[in-house]
């Protein structure tokens, strides 16, 4: 393995740690709103690190653009989805079962 391989493996391994953290958070945190924190923030960072790891292995500008755009779309979808779930959770409070 050369330097790029080690660097790539390091990024991907670090990314996996954050995906694991997001999942552990989902399981351990006490309420729906807190669980959304783990999903939005830890998974975003995990995806960014894995994308960086892949780019180190194959440094192609078009691939970089693709992964960067993909990351932004996942951020927007994750944050928007989390907001909608949170809003539903808050507004349903005290209104009885839906």
């Amino acid at each position: 393995m050369d330097v790029a391989d080690w660097l790539s493996a390091g990024f991907i391994a670090a990314g996996l740690v954050f995906f694991v953290a997001g999942t552990v958070g989902l399981l351990r945190l006490p309420d729906p709103l807190s669980r959304l924190h783990a999903l939005t923030k830890a998974d975003n960072l995990g995806l960014l690190l894995i994308a960086l790891g892949l780019l180190v292995r194959n440094p192609d500008p078009l691939l970089g653009l693709k992964l960067g755009l993909l990351w932004l779309l996942v951020l927007a979808a994750g944050a928007t989805g989390a907001h909608l779930i949170a809003r539903r959770a808050i507004r349903a409070d005290g209104e009885g079962a839906q």
Partner: peptide, 12 residues
Amino acid sequence: SFKGGIDVARRV
């Protein structure tokens, strides 16, 4: 967003 990921990972 880097800090956000680290923070939530450390907490859980």
